[in-house]
């Protein structure tokens, strides 16, 4: 597995020297954290009681703790899917470029001419995409929880986040979804010649999660721990299938000969 480790080392070094790619990876998490926390802070100070009661009613949050507590609970619950989009989306930014990018830069042939195995190449590329994605997701989740707590604690007397849903989603579900997004991106990247097309195709995987977010924000559904447990089981099964598929589809000769 020395080859895989060397590929991870090189990929991370390249990432560190790509300020634009880093900026594109950080911009979405920054927005996902800053916007709702700022909105909560504004509502905490300026929103009329009727607005808070409307939120409580729309999302059918239990009455104990008052309208502001209901607002915090609704935000914590409804915004959680956004933190599930991050670990799927972020590795795609790197992984979709992994094989297609090597081909475009003409580095694929020298790479394939080394004794490194197919599994080592896939593993190295995957870990290099997963590690930054998961770290960024965890840091973003921690900053979001901290921001919500800073705003809410003075009025509620305690810190509402992280709760069980958030802990499970962050530490169990996020890595599983990140692996899913990455494996899918590697599969697509190994079969689609144009890295931009590969990126766009792989990025469509976030659409169902965004759909869940929108439907939940509209107050039509309320996702809880049971749903996230089911999602984790599904993601784990999909991960196993996709990684096996990625290794099977990674045809060294085809990668060098297919240009359309």
């Amino acid at each position: 597995m020395k080859g895989a480790l060397e590929i991870v080392r090189k990929e991370l070094l390249e990432l560190r020297r790509s300020p634009l790619l880093l900026a594109s990876m950080l911009s979405l998490p920054a927005t996902v954290v800053a916007v709702p926390v700022a909105l909560l802070a504004w509502l905490a100070h300026a929103a009329p009681p009727q607005a808070l009661e409307f939120v409580q009613e729309l999302y059918r949050v239990p009455a104990q703790g008052g309208p502001f507590a209901a607002l915090v609970a609704a935000l914590a619950r409804n915004w959680l899917p956004m933190f599930l989009v991050l670990p799927v989306f972020l590795p795609i930014l790197i992984a979709a470029q992994s094989i297609g990018g090597e081909r475009e830069r003409r580095t694929l042939e020298p790479l394939l001419a080394t004794p490194v195995s197919t599994l080592e190449i896939i593993l190295g590329k995957s870990v290099a995409a997963l590690v930054p994605a998961i770290l960024i997701t965890w840091i973003a989740a921690a900053l979001f929880c901290l921001g919500v707590d800073l705003v809410a604690r003075p009025r509620l007397g305690s810190a509402p986040l992280p709760d069980a849903d958030w802990l499970f989603a962050t530490f169990v579900l996020s890595p599983l979804l990140a692996l899913f997004g990455n494996a899918l991106a590697v599969v697509v990247s190994a079969r689609v010649v144009d890295p931009r097309a590969a990126q766009n195709l792989a990025a469509t995987t976030v659409v169902p999660l965004l759909g869940l977010l929108v439907v939940q924000l509209a107050g039509r559904i309320s996702l809880g721990l049971r749903f996230y447990l089911g999602l984790a089981a599904g993601a784990a099964a999909a991960d196993v299938l996709l990684v096996a598929l990625a290794v099977r589809l990674f045809d060294r000769e085809r990668l060098l000969t297919k240009w359309r």
């Binding site: 080859g3 060397e6 070094l13 830069r105 003409r106 004794p115």
Partner: peptide
């Protein structure tokens, strides 16, 4: 193998590129 185009990583130095491939070998 000397490939038709050099095929190195632009953001790595000449030495870093050689070291990368040396480790892959």
């Amino acid at each position: 193998l000397l490939t038709e185009s050099p095929g190195f990583y632009d953001r790595l130095t000449a030495l870093e590129n050689l070291l990368h491939f040396a480790r892959l070998y």
